[in-house]
Computed example of a mutant assay.
Amino acid sequence: MNTFVHPALFYRTDQEYLAALVPFATEGLDAGHPVAMAVPGDRLDLVRAGLGALASHVTLLDMAVEGRNPGRIIARVLRRFADRHRDRHVRIVGEPVWAGRSATEYPACAQHEALINLAFDGRDVTILCPYDVSSLSERAVADAMVTHPVVWEGTSSYESAEYDVPGLLDRYNEPLPEPPADAVFEVSTTGDLADARRFAAARCGAADRVADVELIVTELATNSLRHSGGPCRVGVWQADGHLVCDVRDGGALGDPLAGRRPPEPGQLSGRGLLMVNDLADLVRLHTGPAGTTVRALLALS
């Protein structure tokens, strides 16, 4: 029977970290389970040293790079590894929440942790998510109890009474502030897309990101026209060291995993949000009866 296990690991020191992760990997390898560990850079060096010679048998990934945008972790990190080994139980360590995450990034991290439970329901996978409770905020630690059905702490393991995926997804489905009034272009039909790209390029102000911005605007606006049945508003501006691409329409997005599933073989449509997650450094989304906003942020040099 397929079993999905999704514990949060609460640790306070490097010793506690390795005391949990090294046996998790070695026991998995001994059982013939493929093992991957995606943790932020400084943690990655620690894990590699702790594993010693066994590190060559574990897929090691820098989560600060691979998961810079939390919206691409499920498809491009977790599913990519798990789908290569569908015939066996798979063990993955994924650490998407660390103290260096910004306040703008954090809600997307919490949503990602909740959505793992939907994305892997029924799969034969264990995904262990470490949380450094000595450096993270009280909110992050409390949310970990909400997004994980089980907690590992020291030598103990216990069920979380706060586990509530729908509740967390609803709480972080936050309205996003309106774009500046002079940063908006309305797209009514596909015939407006070329003008929308020119508008976006003119407001970009970063030559190395023009192609990305044009593609993001095209994909988001096309999705809006196709699925909302009406026009959309494209916003492009710079704020806090990022280029912001914001697309709003009057439709509601019913699939919480949209843009987070890898495409199936031969799939020709449904890749727009996945592509946006690949290109952007962060994607925030709000949806409800009044409409949907997708906001992509690209870091500027």
Rank of each mutant, 00 (worst) to 15 (best):
P7V: 04
R12D: 12
D14N: 14
Q15F: 11
E16W: 09
Y17R: 13
V22F: 05
P23D: 04
P23I: 13
G28N: 04
G32S: 07
G32P: 00
G32R: 06
H33R: 14
H33E: 15
V35A: 01
A38H: 00
V39A: 03
D42I: 09
L46T: 14
V47K: 03
G50F: 09
G52H: 11
L54W: 11
H57W: 07
D62N: 15
A64I: 05
V65M: 10
E66C: 12
N69T: 06
N69H: 09
G71K: 03
R72N: 13
I73Q: 10
I74G: 01
L78R: 03
R91E: 07
I92F: 00
I92H: 01
P96M: 12
W98L: 02
W98F: 14
W98Y: 15
A103I: 07
E105A: 14
P107L: 03
N117K: 04
A119G: 04
L128P: 02
Y131F: 15
D132Y: 05
S134Y: 01
L136F: 02
L136C: 01
S137V: 07
R139I: 11
A144F: 00
T147K: 00
T147Q: 01
T155A: 15
S156I: 05
S156H: 15
Y158H: 15
A161T: 14
E162L: 15
D170V: 05
D170K: 12
R171L: 15
E174G: 00
P177T: 10
P180M: 10
A181G: 00
A183T: 08
V184H: 08
E186D: 12
T190D: 01
T190F: 13
L193R: 06
D195Q: 13
A196S: 11
R198F: 06
A200V: 05
A201Y: 05
A202F: 02
G205E: 08
A211Y: 06
E214S: 10
E214D: 06
L215S: 11
T218C: 02
A221H: 08
T222F: 10
S224K: 07
R226W: 10
S228W: 12
G230L: 08
P231K: 04
C232S: 12
R233N: 09
V236E: 08
H242W: 04
C245S: 11
D246Q: 15
R248E: 08
R248N: 06
L253F: 00
G259S: 07
R260G: 04
R261W: 12
R261Q: 14
Q267W: 03
L268P: 00
L268W: 13
S269I: 06
S269R: 10
L274Q: 02
V276M: 06
N277R: 07
D278C: 11
L279A: 04
L279D: 06
A280Y: 14
A280L: 11
G288A: 08
T293K: 00
V294N: 09
